[in-house]
């Protein structure tokens, strides 16, 4: 896939929403080890709201779609995840030219702006054991990629995110409730980073499925 139009993007976001909601038990389990175990609940709440908003409406632009996705998460989740993950979805479209279809280059640029917005808002840097540890390498992998294929760019992003998740096991938490654990949080992966990986993996799977259907 060289470009994705608004309608396809909506289908992809709905696919991602289902995947994240299915992952709730796994996210809860991951978060319980060093957090308070509510990350999965928060993500499920957020993506249920996303499904409601997206299902009930038609969108003209990719911009609107991502903005509404972000707002749905922001107004339903609460917690640090609510702010940070909604920013991941709507931070990148701020100031972006309205468009009803997007290529991999523009998408990578959008995600880089999202990353910037997430870091500005949340204050976390690479190595702080947060979702940034997965989002930053995923965005870097997307920016590097020049091949123009969506299935491929999301696969690379997911792979980079997964490596980022693995790396969080080595870090001591600097943010959120796991922070008070400090060194004791070492050895466990970060739940927010895990969610970022799930999101990119789902995007990749949606593209691969779509390409297979069209082939």
């Amino acid at each position: 896939m060289k470009t994705i139009c608004t309608e396809e993007m909506k289908a992809m976001l709905l696919f991602i929403a289902d995947r994240v909601m299915e992952s709730k038990p796994m996210l809860t389990e991951v978060d319980s080890r060093i957090g308070d175990g509510d990350h999965g609940i928060g993500m499920e709440t957020g993506f249920r709201a996303v499904k409601e908003v997206l299902s009930g409406e038609d969108f003209d632009t990719v911009n609107q779609l991502f903005r509404q996705t972000g707002i749905a998460m922001l107004n339903s989740m609460g917690g640090a995840s609510g702010v940070v993950f909604s920013t991941m979805f709507m931070g990148g479209v701020k100031g972006m030219q309205d468009t009803s279809q997007i290529d991999t280059q523009a998408f990578a640029d959008m995600m880089s702006r999202s990353l910037e917005a997430v870091q500005k808002r949340g204050g976390a840097r690479r190595g702080d054991k947060t979702m940034v540890d997965a989002l930053e390498p995923a965005c870097a992998a997307m920016s590097e990629y020049q091949g123009g294929d969506f299935g491929e760019i999301f696969c690379r992003a997911a792979e980079a995110a997964q490596k980022g998740v693995e790396e969080t096991k080595r870090y001591a938490a600097k943010f959120g409730r796991a922070k008070s654990l400090m060194e004791r949080s070492i050895g466990y992966q970060d739940a927010g980073a895990t969610s970022v990986w799930i999101i990119f993996r789902a995007a990749a799977d949606w593209c691969l499925k779509k390409e297979a259907e069209e082939a």
Binding site: D38, I41, L74, N75, G78, G82
Partner: peptide
């Protein structure tokens, strides 16, 4: 008030 053990969202 937020969801269980989660802070309220900005709109709330």
């Amino acid at each position: 008030n937020g969801n269980i053990f989660a802070s309220p969202d900005p709109n709330t």
